[in-house]
Design a protein around this nucleic acid. Sequence first.
RNA 1: GGGCGCGUGGCCUAGCUGGAUAUGGCAGCAGCCUCCUAAGCUGCAGGUCGGGGGUUCGAAUCCCUCCGCGCUCGCCA
Length: 571
Amino acid sequence: MSLKESFREEVKRRVDAALKGMQASPIYEMESPDSDIADLAIPCFGLAKQLRRSPMVIAEELASLIEADGPIQEVKALNGYLNFRMDQHALFDDTLKGIIRDGQDYGRGKRKGIKINVEHTSTNPTGPIHVGRARNPIIGDTLSRCLRMCGYDVETEYYVNDVGKQVVLLTWGVNNIDPSSVDKSDRDKDDHQLVFYYRVANKRMEEEPSVQAEIASMLQRFEDGDPEVIELVRETAEKMMAGLKATLRSIDVELDVYTWESKYIADGSAKDVVRRLKETPYCGMEDGAAYLELKDFGIHGKNTRFTFTRNDGTTLYTTRDLAYHLDKFGRCDRAIDVLGEDQKLGNQQLIIALEILGSEKKPEPMFYSFVSLPEGKMSTRRGTVVYLDDLIDEAVERAYEEIGKRRDDLSEEQMRGIARTIGVGAVRYNIVRVQPEKQLTFRWNEALNFDGNSAPFLQYSYARACSMLRKAGDFQPVQDSHLLEDDFEKRLLRSLSRFPEVVRESGEERKIHAMAAYGQELAASFNQFYAAVPVLSSKAERDSRLTLVLCTRTVLANVLHCLGIGAPEEM
RNA sequence: GGGCGCGUGGCCUAGCUGGAUAUGGCAGCAGCCUCCUAAGCUGCAGGUCGGGGGUUCGAAUCCCUCCGCGCUCGCCA
């Protein structure tokens, strides 16, 4: 049990005993207020009714009945609250020891032996990743890292939609449109080149009935299993995917598994799902198409039908998605899907259908709202997009300029390397710092913010700590906090002690923005300490303070690691 | 129209399983490099927590209602 847990237990034990002495039933809340007020507080308002006395009086009475010793350093009544302070030095010593002992594993939860599959990104291979969708890989990757830190075995997976009209349309375009009639991207990446074919193909399909017919027949041949068309589509999708993977790599996102949707047609599992669904009592037919009636499952709206075959018996995306999830469940204990908010209804239907199929596992969706532009929604088809590649380039370039303003002692290569770390970090942090369900409007000046609540702020603090430790040379770490008496030092120690709880919250409750907020808090505590307390020039306290810097560096590194953001040793 | 989500200082945001003066940041103003990286630090200013009802000792938080924004309601993916 951690020190904080045993403190909590002890408080509970003593409050229970005191209430018993007052002939009151021990029904009360325990909360953690701001750390400058108390470590643990019990509001006495609820007890006031029971005891027919004012909360202030009750708090005073309880305070007089409870002695401060052991893990409890102080008991105080204030404003109708009974406030407890834990033995700070015990906590601080414990924190320092823990960080020095565990290093990069400080805050890591116990290995759980539970395998979680996190599916994320999964954007259609019809165009480059744009900022509207960029939340997906960044949220997915960050969540995966936080879950690993919690002690789960995590596998990340990209579900490639290589089936259906969109990708066939693109394939038609690539193979039938005269390249000289298509705009060229100045970026030498297949996803950027190919998207122009996609746009032209879309336009021509809308305008020319002959093109529409051609694409329809191609789609038909694809679904009939024509190897020639399948090969062509696969080729195009592979090219697109190579571009998408390169983009992901540039923001330090790599996925463990790529699963192609066409697999579930080829291996017959999608057909199998159709067969099984048709045997259920919820199945109905309309004009030859099979559907599930979901009105008894809490689905509202005009249409409670979940159609799972076309009238020619071929499968739909949702059918294959069912087969995919059943397959995935066989490979993990839990499955988390990071999805755009447009998938909400579909996902709800998917979960019900899985239940009808008798699946014991359910996917756990995590939704995010789309990023829009000030002038409206982003659209690959219309070309009203900001591409992630362009955002990254711009961010890295900006970071490079900033380094140039500050440093003249670095090589070109060093500057480029640091610029990349900072630029990419800034973009990732900016997305992860807000709750996923908040709708976001993309603005260049906000996306490229390097001050305040930003990745460079955390990175700067880390680099600062590194620099101090470099200058300090060898020293003996002091795993004892008795020389750290300053308020700035105490606040920093308190922040450091909170990290394990933040790991738990970010993974277990899937609040990855809590990790970002914590990083900001820790960096701020450190910078304040830095400004107020001399370290290298101090005498008796030097080793103690250097230990504090060392521990801060370790925890900042762990935070940045959870966020998937690089930790530059200088900047 | 139905469902789901969001609405917090000029802008972004935390808090939302009810509790003490509503958290940070950006932009603004005023200071701080003879000391460990000023991408930093200190201070000032800025709030009807969308509006209105209700529940409660207590509401940003729960309930009702209205308003605004987003997503969605395909034999698309």
